[in-house]
Amino acid sequence: MKTIILKSASSYLLPVLLLFSVFILLRGHYLPGGGFVGGLVAAIAFVLDAFSNGLDKTKSVLKIHPGFLMPLGLLIAFLSGVSPIIFSDLPLMTGLWVENPIPVIGAIGSALFFDLGVYLVVIGASLTIIFTISESA
């Protein structure tokens, strides 16, 4: 689908959508949103880009294969889960928080990193599936 309108729109849409996905990820703790939805939105952003500019172009934008995001995300989520054991001798998955909220991002805690892990895994998994299928179809 190489239409000029979609093509020129997508070059603006990709960064905006990605920013939006991060926004959804960050607001998740207080308002509707979170890592899962954020990850899906980010995946959609890349798929939209692939539709308009071709898969190869999107892959070169991504630099690495999206599959690598999966173990990375899993690792981050896992580390945030075990961090209470390592740092403060608390049981697995206890929430740890930085006392003062940071501007823009808000309060930082282990839950945020956990959600970040989910976010990365979702992007990685859905893009891997979609890219693989579209390459072989």
């Binding site: 998740g28 703790h29 949103g33 979170g34 839950a111 959600d115 989910v118």
Partner: peptide, 10 residues
């Protein structure tokens, strides 16, 4: 404050 998300991540 978002219960759904708190359940999921915590």
């Amino acid at each position: 404050k978002n219960i759904v998300n708190v359940i999921l991540v915590d």
